[in-house]
Structures are given as structure tokens and as C-alpha cells.
Write a protein that binds this DNA or RNA. Sequence first.
DNA 1: TATTTTTGTTCAAACGTTGAAACAAATATA
DNA 2: TATATTTGTTTCAACGTTTGAACAAAAATA
Lengths: 343, 343
Amino acid sequence: MASKKKTTIKDIANVLGITPSAVSKALNNHPRISDKTKAAVLQIAKNLNYQPNHLASALRKGKSNLVGVIIPKANSHFFSSIIEKIEEVLNDKGYNVIIAQSNESYNKECKSIDALLYTQVDGIIASMANETVKLDYYEKIKSKGIPLILFDRGENDLNVDYVGIDDYLSSHVVIDHLVKQGCKRIAHIAGFSHTRIYKNRIRGYRDALEKFSLPIEESLIIESNLGIEDGRKIMTQLLKLKNRPDAIYAAGDYAALGALQVMQEQHIHVPKDIALVGFTNEPFTSLVTPSITSVDQHSTQIGKVAAETLLKRMDSPNEKVTLNKLILPAELIIRSSSKKNQL
Amino acid sequence: MASKKKTTIKDIANVLGITPSAVSKALNNHPRISDKTKAAVLQIAKNLNYQPNHLASALRKGKSNLVGVIIPKANSHFFSSIIEKIEEVLNDKGYNVIIAQSNESYNKECKSIDALLYTQVDGIIASMANETVKLDYYEKIKSKGIPLILFDRGENDLNVDYVGIDDYLSSHVVIDHLVKQGCKRIAHIAGFSHTRIYKNRIRGYRDALEKFSLPIEESLIIESNLGIEDGRKIMTQLLKLKNRPDAIYAAGDYAALGALQVMQEQHIHVPKDIALVGFTNEPFTSLVTPSITSVDQHSTQIGKVAAETLLKRMDSPNEKVTLNKLILPAELIIRSSSKKNQL
DNA sequence: TATTTTTGTTCAAACGTTGAAACAAATATA
DNA sequence: TATATTTGTTTCAACGTTTGAACAAAAATA
């Protein structure tokens, strides 16, 4: 109950009759400290239940061993598994991870960045909020010389390392698959084209259609925030067209789910009447009936590469290593919602 | 490009020809510093782009202004919205939040606790992993005198503040509702009874049945991890009974979803043949067809109370305030999956 | 044996901030 | 006018650790 003072390096030194400095060196396994002393120090440290004061050493060394991760929202499998992997890699190297959610809001994102800078993180890994168009706060990170890695939602203009998948190519793979299933009027529930990844998916969609000499109809390309509600709204809208699409390619799984619900409510058979493909391979896609075909982004791979790249940057901050744009391949997971051929 | 030295309080002092101490006091709005000096300091601080060194002040003040939050898994709406609220409340008071995921693993939980202690957090808010039965690491937190608040998954034995809902009562509300719908054989897909909250839900379920003089059949109470897979497995098992239940009360929404899938695959009508109620009111419950009746735990309320209680504890660490067991009321959200009467 | 090298430790300053105590100047009170 | 009080600032030590330089003792080399 009595609030005991914390044991410090000094206490250990007193017990052994040596200087705090020697203790510090012993704990850090300094080569010039004798094995005997090291053993003794370790023993006493254990006895006194010594916990190093991270704040003090961080101050002295000018390094906090903290890394910040900014994500739009943790409640998706994609982001939460990336975080899991980032933590795993970084913890291994003695770093701790601070997670901040922007909730897709630019303001919250700025606040989070300030908070991380204030906490003196040694590096930041971030995926930008949907809303974000101004890059001033990210510039702030750069100007402070803190290593920054972007993933998924990135920005070319920032000129920093980036890890993500090939969105343009992914759209091609999706369209290839749908065309192979016999679809000819493929609609695209798109993300906002001011975000690079969604822009690329749209571009890929257009180019792929062109590749197959399919007409591109602007009324079949609708931008949205890709939430369930938007998926529902847009699907309803699409079904009102005199000339309905025979396939839906949604740039997000939640939008795909919304679309699926509307179709089921209107007794449209998926995939027979309209095929459906989503994006990000959220776990629920395999659990819904019919299961939804989706593009897997290899989230743990992204997390791993992002963390490892950051480690490299933090180890050699001044090194003018060439910029890394790491584009990992995505994978189409084909499920019931798009298998027309097998019906 | 040239890595500039960071501006410190000393630099400001030099510019103005005063002492660092005066600058510090000015920045902290000390009453004895003249308004003129304060204004000047603020001006120069802005000019030099001064950012306070959090590490130094934390060391000096023995307070990091960091709070750790441990959750089993961020990818549920329940936890991610609690975190959102906790962040909101604590950021307001100048605290930053470090989130750690245990991934439902005892080992990872211990590691997270060590990491938080190492980072010198001023307080911890936690919800325990399913796996956790040994409380040694939580005792460690307590023994260091760091305020600890538990929520949702708590433990009475620990003797710390707790925020959660009334699980026992919630079960009563669920059973009341189902009985009112005419159900007589209600099965319970339960959580593991070694976790307090699930034990209470089971107890509530039993007592409520008894209240209505309904027989309690042990074969209708099955413990599980409440994942989708478990929900499927158990539902399949329940459907094999010669005497099928006419209602399912699952202690988690994912398990309820699994059960729903199995029923739909076997062309059992929900709720006509079998009614279904879940727990935690995940967003998907309202989006699935039929929508699933579920118990809402008022997550933002829980987050708010947890954060506020922690603030109180951190403000007066030695105060022998009586222990708070805050039990918030839960709310049954009635949806299609249990509305037999209206068919 | 004298000299150099190696080994193990101590010394002292530093990291940037804070806060109690000391102090001088200005203002209020008697 | 003398004394007490208030105001605004400085002084100085401290928070716990790290690190380069200094040093003495031991070991290796000449």
C-alpha cells in the first residue's frame, strides 16, 4: 500500500558499491564491463525489481522507441490485421506502437499527427483519411525529419515511401474475370476519385473495358464513400436504369454488401441476374450468402513491408536511400457472387 | 534538408535575454510572470517554431500524459467505438492514448502490459482477453500504483474500478422478450463461463427461464468462443436434436450470424420456425436479412465513463475513493429475427 | 625492468524541463 | 518615512539515464 519509490540505477549502484554509470553500462552490456559485475548488477536489478526509466533514457538518447500508426478506422479486418503485423515486427526490435484513428476526418488526422509529434515518436506509418486533400500536416512530419511511411491510401506528391497494391492492375483482373463469366455491362461503384487508389481502380476499370471493346457508360460509374448505405443507394439507383447492368464491381466490400442486400430484397439473383465483386476481402465476404468475390490486398504483407521499411529509415535517417514505392500484387478471391458459369 | 537542431526553451531565453526558467513559467502560464513577458515568449516560440520536449517534462514531472488501452481485438464496432470515445475524453484533458491489442491471447496481453509499463503510462484501461484466467500481470499494474480501469471483460477478484453492463439483467430482458413472442424452448449459445460476463448471462438465462417456469435443458446451453464458426457448429448440433429449440439466444452477434446462416441453408425460417437474438448490437445485425435482434451495450457510454473514471483516479491517486463498479443498463434492440407476433 | 596496451571503473556533463527558494524592485500599508 | 507585501525574475538543483574522457590497475610487450 505504501507508495514505494521506484528503484533506479542509483539504488543498484549503492547496493554494489559501484557507480550508477557502471550499472548503466552493465545493463547495456557494455564491452568494457566485467562479466562478474554484469552478473551482479543483473541479479540486484532483479532483486530490487528494477524497471528502467524509459523517459530518462529516451531524453538522454534523443530517441523514444515509439512509433505512431495512423489509420482511418480500426474496425475493419484490413486495418486491424495490418496493425497486428506492424506491432509484431516493431515490438521485436524494441519499439512500441501508438495507434491513432482519424475516423476518416481530416481534422482528427491533424490532431493525431500533432499528438504523435508531441509524444516524440521516432517514426510514423500512416494511411490517409478519405477526406484528406491538404498535405500540410504530412509535410510537417517530413520537415521535422521524422521517417514517414504511407500505405494503402497514399499520395505521390508527398515523396515518401509507400506500400500498397496495384489498384490499376487489380481492376483489370476483376474485369477479366467478369468478362470471362459473360458479363457485358459492368457497373462500377467507385471510391472518390480524389483519392489515388480509387482513381487508379477507376482508370483500370475503364482501360480494361476498352481492352475488351466494351462501351464505357458514365451512368454506370458512381463515386461514393463505399459504406453500406452508399452501396444500397447506388444499387437502387442502378436498378432504376432501363438498361440494367449485368455485373457490379464495387471498390469496397461494404458497398458490395449494401448492393447485395438491395438485390436480394428485389429478388434479383446473384450472380445469375447480376454478378458482384467487392474489394479488400473482408472476412464477412466469405460468410454472407451468396459469398462475395473480392480482391485480397494481402494485409499482413503490407504491414510487414511497411514496418520493415520504417525500421530501415529509422536506422539510417540521413541516408539518401532511393524512395520505395512498393506495389504488392493483389489477388482475386473468386466466390459464389460472380460464378455465373457454374450455375 | 540540413537537420536543424530543435529549438528549446533555452533558445527562446537567449533571444529575449531572460532565463530558461522564466520561459518555462511563461509557457505554463505561471501567475507570477508578467503578461508582457508571456506575450514575448509566445511570440518568439512561434517564430522559432518551438515544440516542447515532452520527454523532458515528463521525466521532470514524473508524469507521461500517456494512457494505455488494452483491448482483445479492434476490429469490432463495439471496441473501436469505445476507443474512439476514450480518446476523445482523454485528449481533451491533454492525454494521449496508446492502444494495444491482445488478440484474445494471454501472452500477447502480458507483453502489451509490459510495453505499456515500460512506456510509463499514467493509467491503463483494459478489457481482458478471453483466454486470461491468471491475473498476475494485472496485479503487477496495481502493485506499481498505476490506476487501472476494467471494462466489459472484467474480474471481481482484482478489486479495481469496472465499467460494464448488467449482463444478468440483459439475459432477463432477452428471455422476457422471447417468451412474449411465444417461445418455449430457448437455447443459449453461451460464452465461456470462466469469463464473468458470460457466466452472468448464463445465470440470467437460467433464472429467467425458471421465472417463467420453463424447463432448463442442459443440452440447450452450449459454451463457445462466440465466433461465426462456433455459431455454425453449435447451430448444426442443435438442429440435430429430436426436439428442436424454437429460439436461439446467442451471447454474441457473430455466433448469432453463424447460426442464422446455418438455418437459412437448411431453409428454416427465422423467426417463424426459430427466433434469434444476439448480443452487442454490431452494425451488421441491422444489415443482414432478416435483421438480428440484439442487445446494445451503449459502447460510447462505456468508453466515456471508463475514461472519466480513470481521469479521477489519476488526479487523486492516493485518495481512497470507494471502488466503482459501474453497471450501465443495456438495451434490447428488437429486429425481424425475433418478431414472431408480427408475422 | 620499463613501457605500452588492455581492462574495468569512475567522473562529470549532458538531455530539456520544472519548481522551490532566493532575491531585488516596485507597490502598498502603517 | 519606515516597514510589509506583492510582483517579476533568477538561481540552482533535480528527474534517471547515458556517454566520452579520464584514470588506475592489471596484463602484455619490449
